[in-house]
Amino acid sequence: MRAAQVRRTGGPEVVEVVDVEEPRPGPGQVLVEVDAAGVNFIDTYHRSGTYPVATPFGLGLEGAGRVVAAGEGADLPEGGLVAWKQAPGSCAERVVVDAAEAVPVPDGVDAETAAALMLQGLTAQYLCASTYPVAPGDVVVVHAAAGGVGLLLTQMVVLRGGRVLATTSTPEKAELARGAGAEEVLGYEDFAARARELTDGEGVAAVYDGVGRATFAQGLDALRPRGTMVLFGGASGQVEPLDLQQLNAKGSLYVTRPSLAAYTRTREELLERAGAVLGWAAQGRLSVRVGGRYALEDVARAHEDLEGRRTTGKLLVLPEGAAEAELGRS
C-alpha cells in the first residue's frame, strides 16, 4: 500500500509517498481503509522537527474510513464508517487505529465531513464549551476565523448564544467569517482597540488565539476584567515568557494553554464531544468548509499551501482520489 512518510525532518520537500507493507491490527485495534485524511499544522510541526518524532515516520494523525479488519477485543463492526483524531500514519491508503480512538460516524455525515471535524471540530467544541464556556451574550474574539478551527469555533460560539469579533487577513476571508456568523471582522493590527470600541470600553470575555506570538500581547489588552486568554496554538510562532504581574495590572486576567488530549482523556469524554460535533453536522447546524482536496502524491503541496496561509477551512488528502487541490472549494 502507499503511504506518506518522512525519513528526515525539514521542509515540505522531505515528504515521500512510498510503498510500505500493509499494517495488521493488534489487540484493541482496527485496520481502516482511509477515505479522507486531515491535514493540520501539527503535521507540519512533526515534519519540520518542531515537535520531534523519531524518523522514519508516517505523516498524518486524523481521518475517516471503513473498518476492514478488527483485532482481538476491538468491538467495531467491519464495514462501519469511523473517524479519529489520533492515529499516526493516517496519510496512507490504510492505517491501524486504536479502537478507543475510533468514533462511529452517524448517518447523514460522510467520510470527508467526519475527517474534517475530528481534530479541528473537537478543538472548537472544547474551547467554547469547557475552556472558556461561552454564555449567551458573551462577546469573544476568534483569531484566524476563516481557518479550519476558526470557522467551526465561530459557528459554535453563535450556537451557544455568543457574539464573535473575528480577525482575518483578507477581504475574502472576512466574508467567510461573516458567513459563519461573525458579528464584526477586525484587522490584526488594531483588533484590541476595535474590540474595546465595540464593547463600549469594557473588553471581551475571551480571546481564542491559535496564532500565538503575533497576537498574544495585544489580545491581553482586548480582555475585560477577569477575562480569559485561551492560547491554543502558535501559527505565527511561540509566545514569549509572560510576566504574571501583567495579568494583575490588566484586570485579574486568566491565561490558559489547553490541548485536545487533555480534554478527551477518556473514551466517554471523546464520544461526548465527538457526538456533539458530528450531531450538529448531521442536523445541518454546522457547516464544514473543505478548502482543498489533494491526492496522496500531493501531500507536500498541501503542507506548502497550509504554511503559506493560502487556504481557508479544512485541507483533506484523499488516498484513492486523483483530484487536484481546489483551494476555496467547499
Rank of each mutant, 00 (worst) to 15 (best):
A325W: 05
L244T: 15
Y208G: 02
G148K: 12
P27E: 05
S90Q: 12
E21P: 01
D190M: 05
R226G: 05
T168W: 06
A36T: 11
Y188C: 00
Q29E: 15
G38M: 08
K314L: 14
E269C: 01
V14N: 08
D138T: 13
A325R: 09
V134D: 05
G58I: 07
E183G: 01
G187P: 02
A282S: 13
R310F: 04
R160H: 03
E272A: 13
A69Q: 14
K173G: 07
Q218F: 01
A124C: 10
F232Y: 15
A83H: 10
S130H: 08
V290A: 03
M1D: 08
L61G: 06
T9V: 15
G291K: 12
E197F: 06
L231W: 02
T168C: 11
V139G: 03
W84Q: 11
R285C: 04
D209N: 04
A180H: 11
F57I: 09
V82N: 09
Y188Q: 05
H46A: 06
A295V: 04
G284A: 10
L286W: 01
T113M: 07
M229D: 07
T170N: 09
Y126G: 09
E22F: 00
D298L: 08
G237A: 05
L318S: 11
A146Q: 05
E326Y: 02
E197K: 07
G181T: 02
G58K: 10
G251K: 09
Q125T: 04
P225F: 03
